[in-house]
């Protein structure tokens, strides 16, 4: 599924879905019309719209800082993979293709190890941190932030990275939950 963009707007504008349009989360969860779940979601349109706006804020920010749109999409695809969600991976691979895929970023997106000459030390530290925040959040320590700073990641970029990882993990859980609820109707 493609992210909807109005042709008159630049690609980074947050797009709130129209009244009858499904958001990315609902599309990826395969929510069917005229079901108990779609009726319940009709009472939570503000939440679905804010979730879509959050997606745009972390994947396609106006000010990406030291994390380009392509790097964000590659990391998001990787984290969607750790969440065992192929449809979400496919969405982020498409965003990566749109933003400009490189062989190194394709490897990052597919979850491969990052000890490659094509990946600079700073980005390797970012990848390790995204993995930690996705797979072993509870183990995160102050030393992990110290390691990022030592690798040349700025403090604003550390916060941007945390928001990106946190959002993708939120999104993956909402999608997983909606799929279960829709299937159990």
């Amino acid at each position: 599924m493609q992210v909807k963009h109005h042709s008159c707007m630049p690609v980074w504008s947050p797009i709130l879905p129209g009244k009858d349009e499904m958001t990315l989360i609902e599309n990826l969860a395969g929510v069917r019309a005229s079901t108990p779940l779609s009726d319940a979601l009709a009472q939570r349109t503000e939440i679905m719209g804010l979730s879509q706006a959050s997606h745009d804020a972390v994947l396609l920010p106006r000010d990406p800082g030291g994390l380009s749109h392509a790097e964000r999409a590659a990391l998001a695809a990787r984290m969607a993979g750790w969440n065992a969600d192929p449809a979400l991976v496919a969405h982020y691979r498409e965003l990566l293709a749109q933003a400009g895929e490189t062989p190194a970023l394709a490897a990052v997106a597919s979850g491969e190890l990052v000890a490659s000459p094509a990946v600079e030390a700073r980005f390797a530290a970012i990848i390790r941190h995204a993995d930690l925040l996705t797979r072993r959040t509870r183990d995160a320590r102050k030393e992990d932030i110290t390691a990022l700073i030592a690798a040349g990641v700025t403090e604003p970029d550390i916060v941007r990275l945390a928001e990106l990882a946190a959002f993708v993990n939120y999104q993956a859980r909402v999608i997983a939950g909606l799929r279960l609820l829709g299937a159990a109707a």
Binding site: P36, L37, R44, A140, I145, A166, F167, G177, L181
Partner: peptide, 28 residues
């Protein structure tokens, strides 16, 4: 629990998948 109550539980647990990844990893 009704459909919307389960939906709200999915959302409240999931938004803490977000909040925890900020609060627990950016400070102590």
């Amino acid at each position: 629990l009704s459909e919307i109550e389960i939906l709200d539980l999915i959302l409240s647990a999931s938004i803490f998948g977000w909040a925890n990844r900020l609060m627990h990893t950016l400070g102590e």
